[in-house]
Simulated scan of single mutants.
Amino acid sequence: MNDKVKGPASYFPAIEKTYGQPKSHWFAIVEAAQPARHMDLVKVLKDHHGMGHGHANAVVAHMLAGSQA
């Protein structure tokens, strides 16, 4: 059985290491910025928190998919 994390969640260890905050921190920021469209939420993380596009997109995609595990 392959338990390797796939999809947006696979970015979380790098996001936590790079930006020094747990994923729950980033989820809270996205939650507070809603309602908004996907790319508008990505822009919040990029413009106001210095997150790179791929990492911001992964956080938003994971949140909007309804999985915060």
Results as ranks from 00 to 15, higher is better:
M1T: 14
D3P: 01
D3Q: 04
D3K: 04
D3C: 00
K4Y: 06
V5N: 03
K6E: 12
G7K: 09
P8L: 07
P8M: 05
A9L: 05
A9N: 02
S10L: 11
S10M: 11
F12Y: 13
P13E: 04
P13C: 06
I15R: 04
I15E: 02
T18A: 10
Y19G: 07
G20C: 02
G20H: 10
G20P: 01
Q21Y: 05
K23F: 08
K23I: 15
K23W: 03
S24I: 13
S24K: 15
H25V: 11
H25K: 10
F27V: 06
F27L: 13
F27S: 04
F27E: 09
A28P: 04
A28R: 15
V30I: 14
E31D: 15
E31T: 14
A32I: 04
A32G: 04
A32V: 05
A33G: 02
A33Q: 01
Q34E: 15
A36M: 06
R37W: 00
R37M: 07
R37E: 14
H38S: 05
H38G: 00
H38A: 04
M39H: 11
M39E: 15
M39Y: 12
M39G: 01
L41Q: 08
V42E: 07
V42Y: 08
K43V: 02
K43E: 12
V44Y: 02
K46Y: 03
K46Q: 15
D47L: 02
D47S: 07
H48Y: 09
H48F: 07
H49G: 13
G50W: 03
M51Q: 10
G52H: 07
G54E: 15
G54C: 12
H55F: 09
H55A: 15
H55M: 09
A56V: 01
A56Q: 00
N57T: 13
N57Y: 14
N57H: 15
A58W: 03
A58L: 05
V59Q: 08
V59M: 12
V59Y: 07
V60G: 11
A61E: 14
A61K: 12
A61P: 03
A61L: 12
H62F: 01
H62A: 13
H62L: 12
H62P: 00
M63D: 01
M63T: 01
L64C: 00
L64I: 02
A65R: 14
Q68W: 15
A69H: 12
A69G: 15
